[in-house]
Amino acid sequence: MRICVLIKQLPDTGSALKIRADELWVDEDNLVFSANESDSYALEEALLMKEAQGGEVVVVSLGPERVGQVLKDALAKGADRAIHLHDPAWEVLDSLGLARIMAAVLKEEQCDLIFTGLQSDDTGDGQLGPMLAELLDMPHVTLVVETELSDGRIKVKQELEGGWFQYVTAQLPVLLTIQSGINKPRYASLRGIMAMKHKEIKAVGAGDLDLPADQWVAGRTLQRLYVPEKTKETVFLEGSPQEVGAALVDHLVNTAKVF
């Protein structure tokens, strides 16, 4: 069995973000990068499946040089090999262009399962998984919070709105987008880190794919980033913790009347 996991690298949650002078993205100079939160859960789910059923876990990421680090981290945790998609021609992509590139790569891999995170926490599109499933002509289930594999079929628990769930069953191959909280992602062991050094990271560029360049021309481009306008009048309390504590209690009792 082969499981491919798509991992995006992005600024660590909690990073102080500064919009770049050209207003087209954030300034990446002093940021710490890590794997997208739901992608870490997706990788763990793949590793657990491999440990239970055997098979191979392939991790795939598209992005600049720095992206090599999330692939190394994944290999150190137990993934078997990695594919790093990197080409100057792919600097500006939209979801569809990205999905077509991924589809061209994953078609070759003949995966039984493809896992993505449910959405990337930087652009927040939540599109790549279902798009990729469409392009590869396989079924998909989004927001998966539980999986059970048996005899070429997979039964998953899908999260719906407002605390509702549904069990969904599909024949492999299938693509799942994984929701956070499905498992407890592991840390890499020292042995894993040593083993990682002998594992393959295959570099793939535009020239390696049988995909015409017009297939990744963006139909959707970022024009300008800005800090959202505030709509509510917030009373900001300032001063020493003692002063602020006393002032807040006064507001809660006398103005907001919450007791």
Binding site: L96, Q127, G129, M131, L143, E159, E161
Partner: peptide
């Protein structure tokens, strides 16, 4: 909605058209 998140990207890919989600 969650249901739209589930299938609209798939439609966008089939049509080859951009989707502005959220």
């Amino acid at each position: 909605s969650y249901q739209i998140r589930d299938w609209l990207p798939r439609l966008a890919a089939r049509l080859g058209r951009p989707l502005i989600s959220d």
